[in-house]
Design a binder for these strands. Structure first.
Lengths: 333, 333
DNA sequence: TTGAAAGCGCTACCAG
DNA sequence: CTGGTAGCGCTTTCAA
């Protein structure tokens, strides 16, 4: 089933069918009607590959995330996709599950599809891959990794500042035994997040004891990490979690151990995903505006469709401390 | 950047480059090396559209879901994608947000991309669309909607049986004032789920009072619906939720109202998503094996890659009652 | 083992 | 307003 068959059936040329399908309004109305009828009758669906190939342009954006299961990523995707759709773009989603080989594969796939723009929201990026993307000339926006170049923009969150706010706050509440729970890819040697925690503790809470632990991202990961942490015998009065998703798992494990939050131990998250308000108790966390990030990404990737001025090449977002019920004064010994 | 440039640089024909890139091992090794070097140096990425167009085949599956935010859908996707990748397929994901026009758009898009197979995991399907898919000849598998035909398979969950188990169980615990909380698309006039609830109540719990409410799918939706329900003054001793995601929101609202679960009111979910174990209290729910569903979908869509016999055209899955702490005996008046 | 060339289905330009 | 046709970049015979 192709243009030619439709053309034949409608008694016109393929060029005309193409015009009708692309809403080019030089076509006489009677002709248009004939064509549309033929399309209907034949249940014709234009081959998008042929279209893209012939047209040269793509009208498709790509987005790569580490873990769609974490609502944080979904929220960004949702906004990006909504903006995109409004301008007639589609968005391809790829999920890497924190696996580097999957990341490589996905990036190659996106380049192969000649996406009009690519949003990469993953924890870690290999330098070679960044180079590959740079060479590809595809407008790209990274979240929290890489550096801006000709075709690459950057959105980052001032994670360090967020951690500082939390450590300061907990310190002011009297907490002196702290723990940080991350997930494996956020707790590598190079991790900004773990480093931010360590630096901040030694600066704002010099006398404090601390411990770190990590497992996977997610509920189960948070739970395991908490279990592991408690198994060491260390009894923190406050646990700082790399994100809300992990924190929700931590809360569960603490409950299991009969530890009350916040009376026995305070817990904080990061991101302010919807789930954080639904935890029990609701999480003290740091808000990161996912919708703003999604909008910015679209602007970076499709600047021509946007009226305002381009936002520049690099944007830093400050998280905002949200106090809820999972934190309180340190229990006196 | 295209095959020809690579061919020129490597001093061979485009046909040879194509052979190398497709791992057709008639190519002499020296030649292969030359080609691969050229590919490297030029940072060449084959145009996937051209490839699909020329090759005729697609090696890509599509999946359409109503709400990727609900972990249920993500779990199915994860399994399907893993199976697919193992066999060299990619999976396109589309999210409809429960919007019919989005569904239509996504289906057309998938047909236009000539996907090798399509999994449709949405709540409601218009008959015309089903027809369109049937005509398209694309191997398709529906979840919980439609009927099997030549190219369409079907996986359904015996939702009714699940609801029966829950209602019976609650009835046996002495509950006589029941409520059902759905989400809009699950509570339409045609909804199997609401209907299952109503039928079952009148059959297993004839004297029981009942009420239904609904909002969006998700945490916030569950919460609103619960708020609305309580605002009517009705005080159910048990609330049956359309799924776990909604139930988690319901729990939150009950807590807000000072209602203890399960002492004051029992709550049940459906799906047994990971989150259900992390709620407070953990949810009594009905298990639906998402991994099995994902595997089955892949088998339906790419039977040739699978060794075992094809599973037939239609499969019914029975949910399994999982008892946790969110249910208990009805409070005496 | 390699090359030449005919499409795949569509768009876009040039005529008419 | 409509038709003819040259590609888009790749795969796949058919020959060599």
């Amino acid at each position: 089933m192709n243009l030619e068959e439709v053309a034949k059936r409608a008694g016109v040329s393929t060029a005309t069918v193409s015009r009708v399908l692309n809403n080019i309004d030089v076509v006489r109305n009677a002709t248009r009607v004939k064509v549309l009828r033929a399309v209907q009758e034949l249940n014709y669906h234009p081959n998008l590959h042929a279209r893209t190939l012939a047209g040269g342009k793509s009208r498709t954006l790509g987005m790569i995330v580490s873990n769609m299961e974490n609502p944080f990523f979904f929220d960004v995707f949702r906004t990006l996709e909504a903006d995109a759709r409004l301008q007639g773009y589609d968005v391809f989603l790829a999920n890497t599950d924190y696996r580097p080989e999957q990341l490589t594969r996905s990036i190659r796939l996106m380049i192969g599809r000649r996406v009009a723009g690519l949003a990469v929201v993953v924890s870690e990026m290999d330098a070679d891959l960044i180079q590959e993307l740079t060479n590809s000339k595809i407008p790209t926006v990274f979240y929290d990794v890489g550096t801006a170049t000709r075709n690459i923009s950057n959105i980052r969150v001032n994670y360090r500042r967020g951690i500082e706010q939390v450590v300061e706050y907990l310190h002011s509440l009297g907490h002196r035994k702290l723990a940080f729970i991350g997930h494996h890819s956020a707790l590598g040697p190079t991790s900004e997040r773990e480093q931010a925690f360590l630096d901040t503790v030694s600066r704002y809470a010099p006398g404090a004891e601390w411990r770190t632990a990590a497992d996977q991202d997610g509920l189960e990961g948070g739970r395991s990490a908490a279990r592991e942490l408690l198994a060491t015998g260390f009894r923190p009065t406050a646990i700082i979690c790399v994100n809300d998703f992990v924190a929700a798992g931590v809360l569960r494990e603490l409950r299991q151990h009969g530890l009350r939050v916040p009376q026995d131990v305070s817990v904080t998250g990061f991101d302010n995903i919807k789930l954080s308000e639904f935890c029990c108790p609701p999480l003290t966390t740091l808000h990161i505006p996912r919708d703003r990030i999604g909008h910015l990404m679209f602007q970076f990737l499709a600047p021509e469709t946007h009226t305002g001025k381009p936002p520049g090449k690099e944007i830093m977002i400050d998280p905002e401390l949200i106090l809820r019920e999972s934190t309180g004064p340190a229990a006196s010994e």
